[in-house]
């Protein structure tokens, strides 16, 4: 269990939020151009990394807005949160080697 900083509301208990999976997956411009492998890949295959993960969360029981989180899935330590219209924040090497 952890605290998450909603870009609009600030720090709140994780139970106010819901995780919505890997971030920055772009819907293909023209799905009809994709073969089965590319379409399956888009729909179902995920990075599922052990370590730094970019993911989407929504503040379900708060402002109900969507945003992105950079979280270390090995420790659950959250490095950064950012709005969908913001660029992906750069993490310093000091930041990524921080213990949980």
């Amino acid at each position: 269990m952890f605290l998450i900083k909603c870009p609009w509301c600030g720090y709140r208990d994780q139970t106010e939020f819901s995780a919505q999976g890997e971030a920055h997956i772009v819907r293909p411009e023209d799905p009809y151009q994709l073969d089965e492998e590319q379409w399956g890949d888009y729909l179902f295959f995920r990075k599922n990394p052990k370590g730094i993960h970019h993911e989407r969360w929504v503040h379900s029981h708060g402002c109900r807005r969507w945003f992105n989180v950079i979280r270390d899935t090995a420790t659950d330590h959250i490095h950064a949160t950012y709005r969908p219209d913001e660029p992906i924040p750069e993490l310093s090497s000091e930041e990524t080697s921080k213990p949980a």
Partner: peptide, 18 residues
């Protein structure tokens, strides 16, 4: 739970989340 980690070592992804 670590299947995606090993798949990445082998150069592919899986339809799995842990």
């Amino acid at each position: 739970g670590h299947c995606s980690v090993l798949a990445e070592m082998a150069g592919f992804r899986l339809p799995v989340e842990s």
